[in-house]
Design a protein around this nucleic acid. Structure first.
Length: 232
DNA sequence: CCAGACGTTGTT
DNA sequence: GTCTGG
DNA sequence: CCAGACGTTGTT
DNA sequence: GTCTGG
């Protein structure tokens, strides 16, 4: 992780939960992929919800090197040239109410949805970069908007069954501290007791399938094939 | 000194 | 296989 | 993260 | 911009 997420909680719930106002209407999203714009709260404007593009492009990059960094390892944030400055100065909360991971099985990849046990929205620890000044480069077509990345860490007991990394989820009490520059003690795996994971349809594989159907639980394909899913 | 990389996950 | 687009 | 393209000359 | 490799 983390390469796919969601945020379909109502605008009202999100506004109350994070005490911030979206700068444009908040639409429900069930399947958000890298390269898309997604709501975040930035440390430089903590009372606003903005929509940078998922995939951090360092300020010194001309953007020609591909589509940006969708994840950043918590273990090396402070050292890596691509993240060091953002870690020191540009924190953000990436708003979500779940994410998806693909478990490698003998028969293929089974997608799982992972969320809080109470299904409430939460925040990933994130870093952001400002866009380049001025208009989009007419020659390269490179985008010029702000970008962000999601910090990853080791998995907890729930996520471990699916994948060997997980995004850093902040508890409500940690959010302000992260924005204000708190350090790596905030970047531990989230408590497994407050999370759950369940298999979902491979419809989620296609980023174009952005509907409530992709959050519905289905029998895991490997369980179907071994008969484990047959009797409830 | 300049040139070239700068990242993750996953895979081998 | 690898890169780009979503 | 996964899905889908990945090429040219020339033609409509 | 800053670090590493040559």
């Amino acid at each position: 992780m983390c390469g796919r997420t969601s945020l379909f909680a109502s605008a009202e719930v999100v506004r109350e939960r994070f005490d911030a106002d979206p700068v444009r209407p908040l639409e429900p999203r069930y399947n958000v992929s890298p390269g898309q714009e997604h709501p975040v709260v930035r440390n430089d404007a903590p009372d606003e919800i903005r929509f940078p593009t998922w995939g951090l492009v360092p300020r010194w990059s001309d953007g020609s090197g591909g589509s940006g960094h969708i994840n950043a390892r918590a273990e090396t944030l402070a050292e890596k040239p691509s993240f060091r400055e953002a870690f020191a100065e540009r924190r953000c909360l990436v708003l979500a109410d779940g994410f998806y991971d693909w478990k490698q099985t003998p028969t293929g990849k089974q997608p799982y949805r992972i969320e809080r046990e109470d299904r409430e929205p939460f925040a990933f620890a994130g870093l952001w970069e400002p866009g380049t000044e001025g208009a989009e480069d007419p020659n390269t077509g490179n985008r010029n908007g702000a970008t962000f990345t999601v910090v990853t860490t080791e998995p907890n007991a729930v996520v471990e069954r699916v994948h060997h990394r997980m995004p850093v989820m902040l508890s409500p009490g940690e959010e302000q501290r992260w924005l204000e520059g708190g350090d790596s003690d905030l970047l531990d795996p989230y408590p497994a007791a407050e999370m759950r994971a369940y298999p979902v349809s491979s419809a989620v594989n296609d980023p174009g399938n952005d509907s409530p159907a992709v959050i519905e639980e289905v029998p895991a394909e490997e369980d179907v094939q071994t008969g484990l899913g047959d009797f409830g």
